[in-house]
Every structure is written in C-alpha cells, then in structure tokens.
Design a protein around this nucleic acid. Structure first.
Lengths: 125, 125
DNA sequence: TTGACGCATTACCATATAGTAATGTATTAC
DNA sequence: GTAATACATTACTATATGGTAATGCGTCAA
C-alpha cells in the first residue's frame, strides 16, 4: 500500500528536481526560462517535465504572468511531508537536531526574541 | 555533477527500503529473515538486494551471527546526509522546525537546560 | 559428511524513468 | 494580421530499476 510520502520521496529522488527546489528556495519565484538557464545540459521540455512532476507533488505552484509561468516553492508540502518521517527517527537525530536548532536560533523567530528578552545579552556565538 | 546526497535520496526513494529502515528504527537490530517476514509479497533475494543497496549507502550495517546476518541502522549516515539539505530550507521550515524542537525539548538537551535557567518559566507551549 | 538452513549473487525480465525531438497553444511584438 | 516568444504536451527512445528465478557458499545439525 503506497503511502502519501511515496510520491514525495520519488520526486525528491531526482537531482535535477532537488536543484530546482534549491533555486526556488534561494532566489524566490522564478520563471521557467530563468530556471532553465541553470540547466544548460537539458532541453526546455525536460525542465518542463520536471516542473510538472514537482507541481503534481504539490512542492511548487505556478502562476501565469503574461506568457511566462512563475514558479514558487510550496514549503508547507515539503515540511508536512517530511516532518512526520523525520520524527520517526527522532531517537537517532540528536546531533542533527541540535544543528537544526542552532540554525533556527539565527532566524529571529519569536521564540528567539523572547529568549533574548529574558537572557539580556547579545547574539549567542 | 552528482553530489553525495544523490545516493542517499535515490535509496530513500523506494518504499520497501524506507520500510526496512522503519523496522530497524522501531525494533533495533534484525536478521534478514525477521525483516523478510514483513514483506510476504517479496522473495528473499529481493529483500537481500534492498539490504545491499542500504548497505552501499551506509544507512545500515550488518554483522554475522552464526549463519544469519544481523542488520542495524546507521543513524549518523541518515542524519549527516539529510541535515545539510534540510538546513537549506530553514527559512521555510518554521512550523516543522518548531515541532522538531518540541521533540528535542523532551530529550533534556543541555541547551534546553540553559534556556530554562534563563527564562525561568515552564515549558513554552 | 551429508543435508538443510540463511543469505548473497548472478542472470534475466518487465516496467518506469529521464531524456530528446516535434508539435501545439497562448501571448506579446511588429 | 504575422511572426516570435514562452511553455506545455505528446511521442518516442535508451537506460535504470525493481522484481523473480536459479545458483553459490558458508554454517549448523544429524
């Protein structure tokens, strides 16, 4: 019985698709042409197929702007799909989790603000 | 240029292999026969091939015990392989990260102890 | 030592996948 | 209008992948 994470992991298995997600994460919304410029080794229809796969998985969404399609990340799909899976391994994640928490500290999340308010010293290392 | 995470994601793409990892995570070390018992729809050599793939990726390791092979999780490979990738999306992970941090809170890490010492109130919702 | 067991390995097959090429379809420029 | 742009879609191909079947090989029981 295929679970819902099957589709997610299958889509993430391809390096080109992960690279597309990386680009959208770093640079925000991008058109197909802008994305394709990063893959000179692929023809346009190849990129388009990967984008369709990402759309089908709900990892990205697209809006028309004139004759171009602007793609953007749908981060909730990624988080919602991976978080439960990651949680299953939480017993084994302690080192990685601490790194993630360190990264989260740098984001100025409200938790950090609250933390700073109470701690009363400047940014931790 | 294939990065090191390519192999990891390719191995994780298969539901049977993820299921094997789940079993090892839940129940600790298991023999091939014990693992195979959970996959009645597959013949033994199929399981063996998946185990070889997981071994090649470093996600599991095996030790002989008599005439059986006992497989166990290699959690560091999983954590080390996924954490950098997850970190790239940290801007988008706030909801998932908070859930992960909640899980981490239960582990009594020293960071949490320090945080509580400064904050001086009980666990943040 | 002679089987039987537990698993790995090899050979082989069917299907899935990633890629190209060609065509179709709006949209903008001229 | 006509042509060019920006993608999507379809058709097709080569390769990769997951699966079975058959064989091999070390280990234990008799």
């Amino acid at each position: 019985m295929p679970t819902s994470s099957d589709a997610l992991f299958r889509v993430l298995a391809d390096p080109t698709r992960r690279h597309i997600l990386d680009l959208l994460a770093e640079r925000g919304a991008l058109t197909v042409g802008q994305l394709a410029a990063h893959f000179p080794e692929l023809v346009a229809s190849g990129i388009s197929k990967h984008l369709m796969a990402l759309r089908a998985a709900g990892l990205v969404s697209a809006t028309r702007r004139g004759r171009q399609q602007v793609y953007q990340l749908e981060p909730d799909t990624l988080a919602a799909g991976l978080a439960p899976w990651i949680a299953k391994y939480r017993k084994y994640w302690s080192p990685a989790l601490e790194r993630l928490r360190d990264l989260a500290e740098q984001d100025g999340a409200k938790d950090r603000a609250a933390f700073r308010r109470h701690v009363g010293r400047k940014r931790l290392k």
